[in-house]
Computed example of a mutant assay.
Amino acid sequence: MSAIRVVVADDMEVVRAGFAALLDTQPDLAVAGTAADGAEAVRRCAELDPDVVLMDVRMPVMDGIEAARRITAAGGPARVLMLTTFDLDEHVYDALVAGASGFLLKDVTAERLFDAVRVVAAGEALLAPGITRRLIGEFARLRPRPAAPALAALTPRETDVLRLVAEGLSNPEIAARLVIGEETVKTHVSRVLRKLGLRDRVQAVVTAYESGLVVPRTGAG
């Protein structure tokens, strides 16, 4: 099995080198290249075709959000994992809307970093449910709502599944709530993503809030 190829993008050399050195300690992870700004990250992804990009939010020349948008729009295999200092950073919400598959705090432990890269490379989203709801709920509530996507394309059961995904439930929890099999839940989630043109569960959560299917809570929740 080939190693997961990673590009590390951060404008601080010590951070960039530190993450790269950590990742290279794992036999199933390989640092394909590094970048000091967003524009370089976009170029490196086009050249190297990595599986995962560790992307700092704030960088010169081009920030991590615009870089994430361009990388995901290019349609390649690279999945973007944002690096940030604050878990409720407005820029993280923007990055998720731009197509990032999740985010990590910069003070992440080494093991958490390794697991995160593996999870995202496997096509999963990386967000703790509680953080997801607070983050997306807060900014969806504060911002003008864009035009709703074609939720009418979903069946009633698919709509139920999307709502529960947005509430932060895992596949086993959704299966228990709806009294259906876990494989059936996976099938429904796949169909929801395909019908709405979404890459992963993170984008599904954003869509559920922005379409009004799930209403953000006004208090802590």
Rank of each mutant, 00 (worst) to 15 (best):
V161S: 01
V202L: 11
A147C: 05
P27A: 00
V189F: 00
A74Q: 03
V165F: 06
A3M: 13
R44D: 00
G76E: 03
L164F: 11
A36G: 06
C45A: 09
V202M: 10
L23G: 01
T155Y: 04
V57P: 11
L126W: 15
R133P: 13
E210M: 11
A20Q: 04
V6G: 03
A148T: 14
V165M: 10
R194K: 12
L83T: 08
V42R: 06
V215L: 15
F103Q: 09
D51K: 12
A110P: 13
D24W: 00
L126E: 02
A78G: 06
E182H: 05
A36N: 05
A9C: 03
T184V: 11
A74R: 08
D115C: 02
Q203K: 05
A17H: 03
T184I: 01
L88Q: 15
R43H: 09
L22C: 00
S190K: 13
D63T: 14
G137F: 10
V119S: 08
L169E: 11
P144S: 07
A95G: 11
L142K: 15
D87W: 01
M55L: 14
L22P: 00
V42N: 05
T85L: 09
A110N: 11
D11E: 01
P77C: 00
A208N: 11
L135W: 08
G219P: 07
P144R: 13
V214W: 12
D49S: 13
Q203D: 04
I174E: 06
V189I: 13
V165Q: 02
G38P: 11
G64F: 13
R58S: 07
A140T: 15
A116Y: 06
R191E: 07
A3L: 08
D115S: 14
G38S: 06
L142G: 14
R133V: 15
M55Q: 14
G219W: 11
M59V: 13
F103W: 12
R5N: 03
S101F: 10
R157S: 04
A208S: 10
E124D: 15
V185T: 06
L151K: 03
E173K: 14
A208Q: 09
L113H: 04
R70F: 01
L29E: 01
D49H: 13
T85C: 02
G212F: 12
P149V: 10
A95N: 11
D160I: 07
S2T: 13
